[in-house]
Write a protein that binds this DNA or RNA. Structure first.
Length: 218
DNA sequence: ATCTGCAGATGCGGAGTGGC
DNA sequence: GCCACTCCGCATCTGCAGAT
């Protein structure tokens, strides 16, 4: 496995030098633990709908989603009655996918449960980056449709420190011998976390930056 | 008992096609 | 210009058999 500096050099070479590369590396939001609950639910829902769909369609309808789901306030979403849910199901201001629309109620409940543990911001935003896979596992287990890439994108878009196992990042991890195929097993995820932890130690950088550097190296 | 990997099902709007 | 129709994209979920 190459050191972070070696991979960084490859990426810088491919993307117009260190200066140009640096500008493309997003950093996590330092205030992420203060992100309100409704914004977590909003970004989760958006990622769930974007999965498998044309992102422009979701973007164009997003105001409708915010409106029909009460700005994603947890209470109204978690305790929505069937009558209101049916009305949304037939409203063209949202994408009328019943299974996905139902995730709003389920994930609102999950976020409410987190209040006992300090709240969504503290739990999701404050989860140690060195155990990021633990957070992903929790989202998969307790959330609705937040397993796989969707949970990863949701964390990234919310502004949390995160990696995304995209095609390019996976290709780099395979090239470095960290995994031998796209990570799906627990053992593979553990190996991925281990590699990221090593690169974090070597560079002092965030998961975000490392993930982006890996992606740009392919 | 728990985890893993696989196959098949699911879902909506957009693009493309053919016909008038 | 417009209607009716089909296929496609993408990642999840479910159920099951097999492995640990």
């Amino acid at each position: 496995m190459r050191s972070f500096d070696e991979i960084y050099a490859i990426s810088a070479d491919r993307h117009g030098g260190p200066g140009a590369l640096e500008e493309k590396l997003g950093k996590p939001d330092p205030e992420i633990t203060k992100l309100p609950e409704d914004r977590w639910l909003s970004v989760m829902t958006k990622c769930i709908f974007q999965a498998g769909f044309n992102w422009k369609v979701i973007e164009a309808k997003w105001d409708g989603f915010e409106e029909l789901f009460h700005g994603f306030e947890l209470g109204p979403c978690a305790f929505m009655d069937d009558r209101e849910f049916d009305a949304i199901l037939g409203d063209t201001r949202v994408v009328r996918n019943g299974a996905k629309l139902a995730t709003v109620r389920a994930n609102a409940s999950l976020l409410m449960e987190l209040r006992d543990q300090g709240g969504a911001g503290e739990v999701l935003g404050g989860w140690a980056s060195t155990d990021y896979i633990g957070l992903l596992e929790m989202l998969k287990k307790r959330g609705s449709r937040l397993g796989g890439n969707t949970g990863q994108y949701a964390m990234r878009f919310a502004g949390r420190d995160s990696f995304i196992l995209s095609r390019d990042v996976t290709a780099r991890l395979m090239a470095e011998g960290v995994i031998d195929k796209p990570a799906s097993s627990k053992a593979a995820m553990k190996a991925v976390q281990g590699a990221f932890n090593t690169w974090m130690e070597q560079s002092g950088r965030s998961l975000n930056e490392i993930s982006r550097v890996l992606a740009f190296s392919c």
